[in-house]
Design a protein around this nucleic acid. Sequence first.
DNA 1: TTCTGGTATTTGGTATGCCAAAAATATTCG
DNA 2: CGAATATTTTTGGCATACCAAATACCAGAA
Lengths: 243, 243
Amino acid sequence: MPARKETKAPPVMADADIAIVRIAPETSFKNKAYEALKEAILKMDIYATPEQVMLDERALSERLGVSRTPIREAIAMLEQDGFVKTVPRRGIVVVRRTKTEIVDMIRAWAALESMAARLITTTARKKDITALRDFFKDFGKDRLPQDHVEEYSKANIAFHQALISLSESPVLVDMTNDILLHVRGYRQLTIGRKDRTATSLPEHLAIIEALEARDTELAEKRARDHTLGLAAYVEAHGQELFS
Amino acid sequence: MPARKETKAPPVMADADIAIVRIAPETSFKNKAYEALKEAILKMDIYATPEQVMLDERALSERLGVSRTPIREAIAMLEQDGFVKTVPRRGIVVVRRTKTEIVDMIRAWAALESMAARLITTTARKKDITALRDFFKDFGKDRLPQDHVEEYSKANIAFHQALISLSESPVLVDMTNDILLHVRGYRQLTIGRKDRTATSLPEHLAIIEALEARDTELAEKRARDHTLGLAAYVEAHGQELFS
DNA sequence: TTCTGGTATTTGGTATGCCAAAAATATTCG
DNA sequence: CGAATATTTTTGGCATACCAAATACCAGAA
């Protein structure tokens, strides 16, 4: 039945197309719990507290007002994401990555982003590329990024996500977002550092220029080297953040 | 209690260090179910059957001899992996990727592998790089890959996995393996194609040569272009595989 | 006081049972 | 006979109860 049949004389009322208010089953408790726990974990700043953070199924189920079943399913999903690790008969620990792991992740990020840059040079529209500059329109010689670190940090993340999105590659987008969720944890403590922030903006602009010039190789190289630079920075200056 | 106390006169027996046979809790039903289902899905050749494959919780729990609870947790994990998608009150469907999605995945693979190649040129040992040739030692002018497609296909996958492993980057390894699991489904129908197989071997050897020469940029380029070539091939010749 | 042994408690793992929505099937009416 | 409708069945979602392992706690002995 490809098209909608137009009944000529509706007996009682004109059946459909009247504000179908999204009967959608809303999302299940399992998914709600997943989102809630994920957000909670991401904003708890794991690297600030010295002792390892643990979760308790029963406490969570009570807090969220649901039974343990959907909680456990959500935990299983979070474990697949690498955010928690459940130890049988011991508890559920929120995973803390080591510096080495973070550097490793950032390298993967660099790989994905450089591929995105490559694709963008061949498919993205000029106006969309140029629009990337808008993320930094509030910064310049009279308003230095290093003087508004927090704000610049947000713009930085937004820029990278927008950049990846331009590749129109769902896989690259999803994989990068996953990585960013893990790396973002101490973004404030690394990307936000003033010394690095100073070099960040020009590099971003240089990437945009290469993209506009449709210079595939150069765009790829600049995107890669930029993020690889962050990796090197974390590797060199991030020890104090980890145990 | 840092060190072990050496009792001078053990009354009945010399307590420990006598074959502690790993009391390990083995793995939970949840994990067993996860592994079992994952393997089953991977080997069922989803793209061969026309109608969409569906799973039934109760049937699975009966088949595996466990209750629905661990099955549901395993399903939740598989859904995170993108292997299945559960539709409320409808069923659990085994996800079939479109050609576009597969091409997209292969591009991400190319990105990760080229980064691996880059890292390898700076850290891997010469002998480990050279050892990569062993995967193809059974093929040559007298024994062409295109005449032993199935066998070459296995060697091909093994080579790529070994290559990534040489990067000593767990993140790259894991992400690539995830992708390979999805792409592998119709490996036989794409990578195995004779026309492509013919060009594959020389390209592999060229990658190895660049790695041995420690030519970072060249190794990266060759690794990238090789896998990107596969993506282009699938994009051009893979229509008949998808609906 | 300190060490030892045992007991109560905590915690994740698993099995079951029931619910509601959706689909499949049967039934009734025009 | 056909379509609208009522009924049964199927299926995932969720709550609950119980288990065993690991731990925490406590009393008694040295």
